[in-house]
Design a protein around this nucleic acid. Structure first.
Lengths: 131, 131
DNA sequence: CAAAAAACTGTAATGCTATAACATCAAGAA
DNA sequence: TTCTTGATGTTATAGCATTACAGTTTTTTG
């Protein structure tokens, strides 16, 4: 489950909380859960999150100011990923669509725009909450 | 320039600031610019922004916690819009790609996900800042 | 190995972003 | 008119994120 470079204690604590979570968690929600393990300040959480994001094992959901563990077994970096976020139950589906990526890439080539990072977040209601 | 329903004073003030801006502005940056016209509290700005967003004439950039006036002349259509945000000069290019929309729609149909709102934000470096 | 460099940790203080709660006012519909 | 809806104004507070400073551990490399 753990990614390549051995995580430090703080990173591992934060990562485990996210892996166990069923919904995205804010940094402060994470903090609440790791306080009992010695982490006391928001910055300690944010630093761990930064590292985990750079490893590609955690994603930030911009529209929620929250974080999720990567859903894919093979967490590759710099790939284009999209999220469908249910506003009722907060469940998040992560998916990767090569064709969406291809079309956005195409636009970027045309505009001569060098992309670092792409956020695709769809807010709505999931199947389970519709019925 | 102004949209259908006549804007109220506060809405108009906020909208004008965004139209004149060359980069996305946070609610508090907007507040700084409308203080001289009598707006004093963040909530007054947020309320105006909410209304302008629902009219479709202002977009929120989730990854920046900031707002931009809609770049398109015909703002009425509430299509899927994407943003390319330059991290160097903060310039934002707004574009709409029917193909991307089609593929995301396709995914949503498959997953039986009812979408309300979609955010597509590409962070990187624009053409002008590359050279 | 020892020195240097890089990465991680801890803490306090602060700043930025957004909303809750309450009271009031203005405009249009019944 | 009376009712309803939407906008306004203000204060207080909640929630999210970073700066600054100090110290420690781990890794690199000469």
């Amino acid at each position: 489950m753990s990614p390549q470079p051995r995580l430090t204690k703080n990173q591992d604590l934060v990562f485990r909380v996210l892996v166990d979570a069923e919904t995205p968690l804010s940094a402060y929600m994470i903090l609440d859960q790791v306080r009992e393990f010695g982490i006391r300040a928001p910055l300690q959480v944010y630093r761990a999150l930064d590292k985990l994001q750079s490893l590609g094992v955690v994603h930030r959901l911009e529209s929620l100011n929250a974080f999720v563990a990567c859903a894919r077994a093979d967490c590759q970096r710099h790939e284009m990923v999209a999220f469908a976020i249910c506003d009722k139950c907060r469940h998040v589906s992560e998916f990767s669509d090569a064709q969406v990526k291809a079309y956005l890439d195409n636009w970027m080539v045309g505009a001569q725009f060098l992309a670092n990072q792409t956020a695709i977040e769809i807010r709505g209601t999931c199947r389970a909450c519709t019925r």
